[in-house]
């Protein structure tokens, strides 16, 4: 796939802008796995309405943009069995490690949090290892 650094940079600024709004207006760290995980395991019951409205916006806006013909086409890369395995790994891993790309990668690194920096380096390396293994197995296009 051709690199698209302009779309990457613009989209990235929007992601960071969303995190900045959530922090400065609501006093919250915008971590996708934490917002969803707290709803699912009951640890976020005290502010579940805020979590739900965040997720509603997160699902509705991309659906709206795609419906009017904006946005990228998404290409799934894994078969169903591997997709289930990957989903379980992401669900368990982000809760055990207390964060994902948005919480550790964006919110953590931007405040120079040591945990955020270490977690991001670790999941970048293990993600690259997973893709390398898939490539050696002939499963990457």
């Amino acid at each position: 796939m051709e690199p698209d650094w302009i779309a990457g940079l613009i989209g990235g600024l929007m992601i960071g802008g969303a995190a900045a709004l959530f922090l400065l207006l609501n006093g919250r760290i915008m971590g996708a796995s934490g917002i969803l995980g707290g709803l699912l395991d009951g640890t976020g019951r005290s502010n579940s309405a805020e979590r739900l409205t965040f997720i509603a916006g997160l699902i509705a806006m991309p659906a709206l943009l795609v419906a009017v013909g904006l946005g990228h086409v998404a290409h799934p890369v894994a078969g169903l069995e591997l997709t289930v395995l990957a989903g379980l790994l992401v669900g368990i891993g982000t809760r055990l490690g207390n964060g994902c790309t948005s919480g550790h990668g964006v919110c953590g690194i931007s405040r120079l949090s040591l945990r955020g920096i270490v977690a991001t380096l670790v999941f970048l390396v293990s993600g690259a290892v997973a893709v390398l293994i898939l490539r050696l197995l002939g499963m990457v296009a």
Partner: peptide, 15 residues
């Protein structure tokens, strides 16, 4: 933190 990030990264890479 480290184990969770390893597991998450593997799933991120696969899917």
């Amino acid at each position: 933190l480290v184990t969770g990030a390893v597991l998450f990264g593997l799933g991120w890479g696969i899917a």
